[in-house]
Design a protein around this nucleic acid. Sequence first.
DNA 1: CGCCATATTGAACACAATCAACGCGTGTGG
DNA 2: CCACACGCGTTGATTGTGTTCAATATGGCG
Lengths: 271, 271
Amino acid sequence: MNTAPQTLDLVHPPIKASMPSASGASEQPAPSWHEGFDLLERSVAHTRRLLRPGDTVYQGGQGLSCLYVIHSGAFKTVNFTADGRGQMVGLHFRGSWLGFDGIESGRYACDATALDVGEVWAIRYEALLQAAARLPALMHMIHVAMSGQIARECENLLNLSTLPADARVANFISDWLDAMDGRGLRTDQLRLPMSRAEIGNYLGLTLETVSRAMSRLAERGVIRFDERCRRDISIPSRAGLRALSRCEPGHAAHAGPARWPASVPASCRAS
Amino acid sequence: MNTAPQTLDLVHPPIKASMPSASGASEQPAPSWHEGFDLLERSVAHTRRLLRPGDTVYQGGQGLSCLYVIHSGAFKTVNFTADGRGQMVGLHFRGSWLGFDGIESGRYACDATALDVGEVWAIRYEALLQAAARLPALMHMIHVAMSGQIARECENLLNLSTLPADARVANFISDWLDAMDGRGLRTDQLRLPMSRAEIGNYLGLTLETVSRAMSRLAERGVIRFDERCRRDISIPSRAGLRALSRCEPGHAAHAGPARWPASVPASCRAS
DNA sequence: CGCCATATTGAACACAATCAACGCGTGTGG
DNA sequence: CCACACGCGTTGATTGTGTTCAATATGGCG
């Protein structure tokens, strides 16, 4: 399976001005972010927007007119149920796109909110479509971004349904570090711009469980809390963190029949 | 929030030959599937492929060359971890596309497998891109399909992390019925072409829990087992089923601060 | 200063996982 | 034909992880 950083959206460009090979899975090393942003900058109108922590890029229910590319900062997407409770469903960094969730219905399905100061580029959806029709590379870039979001959500589903609490938290931090890694930022320390409750919401845990899990990770020495603030952590052992995040079955294992028996029980066969 | 059937991919077409309005969220009644398939049929080369239960449309790791549109049947997508365990991450019906997960890396990230007899249309990705560059409606259709998949995965995440076992199973059945509904099929009975283990895997539960949950649903009278086979169920009370599937907090509730306090704790502020 | 939000930690409980037994239908081989 | 194994599903008993309820500590802010 693909072990490449799984939080890249704008990246992995067979984007070569001409047509993507698509089949050959062209293996290129580490494509700088500049390519993608350059392409956007040259080919389609956009407006930049600065956001501060808590500012919303868009809100669920609003009519979709723009898509947004994250230029800097961290953003969350939160889904709201009919009864008003919110579930965080995504975490996004530089290069990721926001707003894909709204294309189907013409209205955003989530809130998108800045977790810290950041900048997004707003691009009118119609303008983007028109530009993409002329520029195969641009169209492919969009598809890559959507595809990446789909793949990452699959990962999240997998983690949610198979990992025990400690591993989920370890995995959460580890993923964050991977994202920083892929963007050339330091990975020996981290500031989580989220409360324990938010992290818990994202991971399907209670805030107490998150707190305990982080304490246990600190005990085991894979993370260390900054003295000043428990949201700042340093990472003494990235490898150890990784190990814990992929951990043991012992829970919802189901090594079981992922491959399906290929024949319907005969008792079901008769119409 | 949008209460429309959430498993429609090809649908909701402001597809009007010209440009989608995108912002206005044009409200059209019940768009027949034919429109989408007609558009495909006219505009891009495709080959039809029949599958029987257990056949794979594609397998994870294969180079992506085609995308697939489901013409009939039910399909699952299964993600495999490094250690070989599989996690079912998606359930797809007529009109849904398969293969989006592979665009980013050029290789499929999942296995896609038929759950019963079905037909898919295979479309070469490159050919699709070229056709879409000429036909805005086609491009928009693809985006709608991807967007729909993203939105549905968000729903799944939400359900996995907030619902207790019985509600997950009820929701699973209810979603399946919604999908049948949107495709003009009968919704008073259902044949689940999956083992309890598979359902459990999809829902993040063990097979025993699924079995018990279904027994409890039957006790409450919202589903009834066919005498011949426990995979065949009839639905005496669709409304009751829906009610149970949206059920109570009492678990990972976190009505908590979905909206973020907007200011970073000052102890974190100093660099 | 008190109040509030955040975070940590403890104790009791509940829900789902685990281990285990059993029934049933099917296909296999004597 | 029957005995048998096997896959699937159900149900019971027990265990364990994570939730819930509660108390405490801290820092910011009016």
